[in-house]
């Protein structure tokens, strides 16, 4: 029958598609957050070459990108990630807690709290800085449209929020209610809350919306590189947060796929001289001191504080600011 034929053709295609996968050389999947697309595109090529030189094995690396929490959620629900390279430790903690795919002490397994690169949060404005934005407190002035994603779903947005929070605490000498007021005014100036950092950047850069983009430093440099200084300008605030995007092997998945060796080497290669150079070329701040010195000219000096200066832990920061009914929700509920 015609329909049975269709059915078998469909099933056949399906089987072929799947067996292709099984017959291929080993593949690992890197589940990452939004702004790292270009970084890992370059890094993967380099690592594939390195691995082939070292072992003779030709491997393939697949990528998945999205908001950091969305990606963590996907891993928890079973995306077969071999490594996770996310925006903040809280999201990887969530994987450990909710799925048991990795041990609780994952962050101690690699140097620098498992962050092979760091970055910070800066302000990107239009060329000539028409709105005269110099620092965080310019963002709460009336009539300024601030672009930042939704901290509920975007890791980058949480860093943005905490950077502003740190500034406000310093400005008001640790007065939390003043700091809350400051953030309420800042978010009142945000006309769009995209679900990921990329969405915000696109709206600011491509769609021409907003006066200032609160952005990952690397994303801001990328925009400058792609579109030129005649379109955008980076403003370094008086103080910002040191962002530490962590990486980890997803143990139970690599055990299952038989890819522990590749996954481990992949992440270690990020810390190697070559890896650090790629990292720096993509405007992430390298953790290796020597590479950092070499590329120092490229990164402006910023007064940086860490997550531990504004919260005991990511868990606590999440609880106070971003959980349902937390400070971020209150900003909107009582407006």
């Amino acid at each position: 029958m015609k329909f049975n034929m269709w059915l078998s053709v469909g099933l056949l295609m399906f089987i072929v598609a799947n067996s292709n996968q099984a017959l291929a050389d080993r593949t690992i999947l890197n589940v990452s957050y939004d702004p790292t697309r270009e970084l890992y595109q370059a890094f993967n090529q380099e690592f594939i070459r390195y691995w082939q030189d070292k072992t003779g094995e030709k491997i393939a690396i697949r990528q998945s990108h999205g908001g950091s929490s969305k990606q963590a959620r996907a891993i928890i629900d079973g995306v077969p990630a071999d490594v996770a390279t996310l925006a903040l430790a809280y999201d990887i903690d969530a994987i450990s807690e909710r799925s048991g795919l990795i041990p609780a002490g994952w962050q101690q397994r690699l140097p620098n709290n498992s962050s092979p690169y760091t970055s910070t949060i800066v302000l990107l404005v239009r060329a000539g800085n028409p709105k005269k934005i110099k620092d965080w407190d310019d963002l709460i002035k009336p009539g300024i449209a601030v672009m930042t994603p939704n901290p509920k779903t975007s890791g980058g947005a949480r860093w943005n929020y905490l950077a502003a929070w740190g500034f406000a605490l310093k400005k008001y000498n640790g007065d939390e209610s003043e700091a809350r007021h400051f953030l309420a005014r800042l978010y009142k100036n945000a006309p769009i809350l995209d679900s990921g950092a990329r969405g915000s950047a696109i709206n600011f850069i491509q769609r021409g919306i907003g006066d200032v983009l609160i952005s990952w430093e690397n994303e801001a440099f990328l925009a400058l590189k792609e579109y030129g200084p005649e379109k955008f300008e980076i403003i370094i605030p008086s103080i910002s947060i040191l962002t530490e995007p962590p990486v980890t092997v997803i143990d139970k998945n690599t055990d299952k796929h038989g890819t522990q060796d590749i996954a481990q080497a992949y992440l270690e290669y990020l810390y190697s001289k070559k890896g650090q150079e790629i990292v720096a070329r993509h405007f992430y701040r390298p953790s290796d001191a020597e590479t950092a010195r070499e590329y120092a000219h490229q990164f402006p000096e910023i007064n940086l504080f860490t997550i531990n200066d504004v919260a005991d832990s990511w868990q606590q920061a999440q609880q106070i600011h971003f959980s349902d009914g937390g400070l971020f929700d209150k900003i909107y509920e009582y407006q």
Binding site: Q63, S64, G66, I202
Partner: peptide, 24 residues
């Protein structure tokens, strides 16, 4: 989907991914 490039991306998801890569 899980948005794995080349593996679990349908055409309409691929549109979104390209869009998010500045690749309008």
């Amino acid at each position: 989907s899980g948005h794995i490039r080349g593996l679990t991306n349908t055409l309409s998801l691929h549109v979104e991914i390209l869009y998010n890569e500045y690749n309008f």
